[in-house]
């Protein structure tokens, strides 16, 4: 274990991984409770286009990914108003758009580096990645602290939240920004294809056993941290892409939680 941490690339992967494992399930819990888990997935696919764009034009991919994801969440809101009773349609539209743009951009030029973003990577985490992840990760966590109560209110009952004077629209926009940022900082280690899993699997496991909202939040974070650490360690020893090992660890926890839950 100690030997593992003597590699500086592994230290970097752990720092980024643990931060991401704190942020993802926190955002994910509210997404799941609002039945919006698939928003994460749609945004992740758009993020792929953002990364391709960044690589193609020599921009730091996290930045272009955030910009693309933010634009996409605006689009989702826009389409959601058009199809008020079919929220999934807006997600499908944005997801398709994201993949289409990504495919075009990837085939336009030399975007070999994109694989590391698709499946995650431990060796490729740079100093720059760490700085950005720490800054943005803390930004998301602090924002969640600020929005915690209004988000709880909205998640349980959006309409009475509105009547009670919760600035629902502003909170929702702020929250979409947080989702976009979370995906962008998570893709380096977990991979674009599996970011949503880290947002939903630990939450799904926690819902099996939680006896209160607080415990749901704590379990989600706990499961996520354990998944990321075991995933990164096995990725190192077995020489596998970390995205896969992390999510397999999360899946195992989910199965165990289902097995032991009384529900």
């Amino acid at each position: 274990m100690m030997e593992l941490l003597s590699y500086s690339f592994m230290q970097r992967a752990m720092i980024v991984g643990i931060l991401v494992s704190l942020v993802c399930p926190t955002i994910g819990l509210f997404l799941v409770l609002r039945r919006l888990a698939l928003i994460g997935d749609s945004l992740a696919h758009v993020t792929l286009a953002g990364v391709a764009f960044g690589i193609l034009f020599g921009i730091y991919p996290v930045y272009s990914a955030i910009v693309f994801a933010l634009l996409a969440s605006l689009c989702i809101e826009f389409f959601r108003k058009k199809y008020e009773n079919y929220a999934e349609i807006s997600l499908a539209i944005v997801l398709s758009g994201g993949i289409a743009v990504a495919t075009v951009l990837i085939s336009l030029g030399n975007t070999a580096g994109i694989l590391g973003y698709l499946f995650g990577s431990i060796v490729l985490v740079t100093e720059h990645d760490i700085i950005i992840t720490v800054i943005l990760g803390i930004f998301v966590l602090v924002s969640i602290l600020i929005l915690y109560k209004p988000l709880f209110y909205i998640s349980f009952d959006e309409e009475s939240a509105r009547i009670a004077g919760v600035p629902v629209k502003q909170v929702n926009v702020y929250f979409s920004i947080l989702v976009a940022v979370t995906i962008a900082i998570s893709m380096r280690v977990v991979g674009i294809l599996l970011v949503t899993s880290l947002m939903t699997l630990p939450v799904a496991a926690s819902l099996q056993i939680a006896r209160s909202f607080k415990s749901a939040l704590i379990y989600s974070i706990g499961f996520s941290v354990v998944s990321v650490i075991t995933g990164l360690i096995s990725s190192f020893y077995l020489n596998l892409a970390p995205g896969g090992t992390i999510v397999l660890a999360a899946l195992t926890i989910l199965l165990l939680a289902m097995f032991f839950s009384s529900k």
Partner: peptide, 16 residues
């Protein structure tokens, strides 16, 4: 996943 008390308490605060 919230207790009765959490739900009631949750409607007390409305501002971020």
């Amino acid at each position: 996943p919230a207790t009765v008390e959490e739900i009631v308490e949750g409607s007390l605060v409305s501002r971020p």
